[in-house]
Amino acid sequence: MTNGVHTNPKGRSQMEDETMIYRSLFPGDVFAEIDRLRRDMQESFDYSPSIRGIGRGGFPAMNVGGSPQSIEIYAFMPGVDPAQVEVQIENGVLTISGERKSDLPTDKTQRSDVHIAERFTGRFRRVVTLTEDADPDAVNAVYRDGVLHISIQRRAAAQPRRISIQ
């Protein structure tokens, strides 16, 4: 650009940026400003429906499903030592808790820069209320590819049964 107007990295001219600041000073435009922010965010999120890679629920992300015979729970907890994970069923409530250690450098003497730190670290705990027919004595838990799969059988009595007519 000529005549002294510089382009900032986003490609917007300085003039436009100034207009925006000026405009936002008027209280009536607060909503317009929020709307603009929302659109900007939407735009950057656009090509990925879930920017964090996990849902709102936090860590671990969970998928829950079921069949007439069982309840299937998948907890996405990559890089967790299975020995450090506790799975508990009490009064029909399933609790998954544990800790994930940080992979970021802790040694201050080694010079390193952390450019992005998005991965979850620390203690976690998630709770799922099970249906009444869940059998706490028939639970199977497997940790594979960073996913903890918990399969809970439903009690036979609760399964649909066809009654033959005499």
């Binding site: 390193s112 952390v114 730190a117």
Partner: peptide
Amino acid sequence: AILPPVDVIED
């Protein structure tokens, strides 16, 4: 696709 969370460390 899901955007996986990452850590990037430079030394």
